[in-house]
Amino acid sequence: MVADTEIADVRAIKRELAKARRRGWARFMRRLAAHGSFKIGFALFLMIVMLALCANFVAPYDPNKSDYRSILMPPSLDHWFGTDGFGRDIFSRVIHGTRVSLGIGLAVVVATGVLGIFFGLLAGYVRWLDNLLMRIMDGLMAFPGVLLAIALAAALGPSALNAVIALTITFTPRTARVVRSSVLVVRELPYVEAALAVGAGHGRIIFRYILANSLSPLIVQLTFVFAVSILAEAILSFLGVGPPPPAPSLGNIIAEGRNYLQDAGWIALFPGLAIAAAVLGLNLMGDGLRDVTDPRMRSEREAG
């Protein structure tokens, strides 16, 4: 009898939650759409993504076709961004390179997201694993900044896949921490305790409640991981441990252009600006997402 009323209660709670989620989702989108810098960032990033996706149609030249007769040409009507030491068209290379760099960034985001959720949930949910997992994560985070990624990429050898692996290993601990801390908060919430009390399956609890509620800080985190990955790819390529030539990435175009800074500065200039634009777009989007999802930050904005 008692159990029946409890179940009824839980159902009611769930209905309410579902409604709240729908309402919340709609409000979330509305807020986002009204957020100025999110809109700018989204538009900027969308434009870059579209250029990258349509690289084959947009790029006027084959990005890997060397042309011995037009080496190191300054920007002109024929070559908007000039040519490099192989006589290749920088504009075409930047567009194709953006595709590679965004691809690497996206792969890191997906891999980091999946692994971050997995380890974060594991640590937050399975208490006896928490300590061990977090010590390992702490160990990985004890390598300052991108040093771990550089060391791993240097050891694995230069390739796009290895860059993704190195960056994923570097950023997963941070993502896992974000997931873990929201799991720790969420699992103490009354309705989750209630669901636990009535013996709802762990899988259900994890996916219906915990994951759903951990999602927003995770998305914010992953937006920044995306931005940092694009910057980090450039660093890896610059140090010669990123995706190798001839296929262009924004980082390896800069790396090739470093030798011509004074003599053909355009080679390094344009991919640098492309990185800045993509990262700027992502940062603006991340700001918007954080403002909209994080109540504390929102209050600060409203205060301002």
Binding site: A227, A234, F238, Q262, G265, G272, I275, A276, V279, L280
Partner: peptide
């Protein structure tokens, strides 16, 4: 501030060398 956050620092370093050193 946002621009600072978005540019690759080594690339900025190359720009600084070009302008202030050379």
């Amino acid at each position: 501030a946002l621009f600072g956050l978005s540019i690759p620092d080594f690339w900025f370093a190359l720009v600084l060398i070009s302008v202030f050193a050379v």
